[in-house]
Amino acid sequence: MSNSNTTNKAGQWHLIDGGRILDMAIGDTDFLAELIDLFLSIVPEQMCEISLAIERKDAATLAITAHGFKGTVANYTKAEPYLLLQELEDLGKSNRLQEASISYVELENEMQELISELNMFMAQVCH
């Protein structure tokens, strides 16, 4: 079973849709490299904000931060990182923070995979 988020023409992508990402940059690989670099630069801050919201048991901040970051992540994937951010947003909205720590750990792992795929994609497409 496969969908557009899991493979590219070489069959190596689990999370990203390379064609969709290229379309986002209208085929301009320099612009695409800038977009991906910008995304990669905000990931640590966004992850830290989510982690702090969970640690401080701040449900409202968790919901708002996860929602905003989900929108940014959606530019690159609608797979696991996106779905986990939706889950964290929902947990914040329903004030179920005891479940959020587990989802956050899963998000950390999935974000590392997304970052790795985006770096490989840039190496292939932007050079």
Rank of each mutant, 00 (worst) to 15 (best):
Ser101Gly: 13
Asn3Val: 09
Gln98Gly: 09
Ser116Trp: 07
Gly27Arg: 00
Gln98Arg: 11
Leu97Pro: 12
Ala74Leu: 09
Ala25Leu: 04
Glu99Ala: 14
Ala74Glu: 15
Val105Asp: 14
Cys126Thr: 01
Glu106Asp: 15
Lys70Val: 02
Ser41Cys: 05
Thr65His: 03
Asn5Ala: 08
Glu55Phe: 03
Ile16Trp: 00
Ile64Phe: 11
Thr61His: 10
Leu118Ile: 01
Asn5Trp: 15
Val105Phe: 06
Asp30Gly: 05
Val43Ser: 00
Gln46Trp: 04
Arg20Trp: 07
Leu107His: 03
Ser103Ile: 08
Gly92Glu: 12
Ile54Cys: 06
Pro44Cys: 07
Ala53Glu: 12
Ser103Phe: 08
Ile16Phe: 00
Lys9Asp: 15
Lys70His: 03
Lys93Leu: 13
Ala59Tyr: 05
Asp37Val: 01
Gln98Phe: 07
Leu52Ser: 12
Ser2Gln: 13
Gly92Val: 10
Phe121Thr: 00
Gln98Trp: 05
Leu52Ala: 06
Ala60Thr: 12
Met111Gly: 06
Leu97Lys: 03
Gln86Asp: 15
His14Cys: 09
Phe31Arg: 08
Leu114Arg: 02
Ile102Gln: 13
Ala33Gln: 14
Leu84Val: 07
Leu91Lys: 05
Ile50Cys: 06
Asn109Ala: 14
Ile50Asn: 01
Ile54His: 04
Ile50Thr: 04
Leu88Trp: 09
Ala33Asp: 12
Ser103Lys: 12
Leu38Val: 08
Phe121Asp: 00
Asp37Ala: 02
Ser101Val: 11
Leu62Gln: 09
Asn95Pro: 07
Asp23Ala: 14
Gln112Tyr: 02
Gln112His: 09
Leu15Ala: 01
Glu87Lys: 14
Gly27Met: 01
Thr6Asp: 14
Gln112Thr: 02
Leu114Pro: 08
Glu34Thr: 05
Thr7Leu: 14
Ala79Asp: 15
Met122Trp: 05
Glu117Met: 03
Asp23Val: 03
Leu85Tyr: 10
Arg96Lys: 15
Asn109Lys: 14
Cys126Lys: 00
Val105Ile: 14
Lys70Thr: 02
Ile16Asn: 01
Glu49Val: 09
Ala10Trp: 12
Tyr76Ala: 06
Thr29Glu: 06
Glu49Trp: 08
Thr6Tyr: 09
Thr65Leu: 02
Gln46Asp: 06
Glu49Ala: 12
His14Glu: 12
Thr65Met: 04
Asp37Phe: 03
Ser2Glu: 15
Met24Gln: 12
Glu34Ala: 04
Leu52Gln: 15
Leu35Lys: 05
Ala33Ser: 14
Thr77Gln: 03
Ser103Ala: 15
Gly27Pro: 02
Asp28Met: 02
Lys9Cys: 06
Glu113Gln: 10
Glu55Ala: 10
Thr65Gly: 07
Asp30Arg: 05
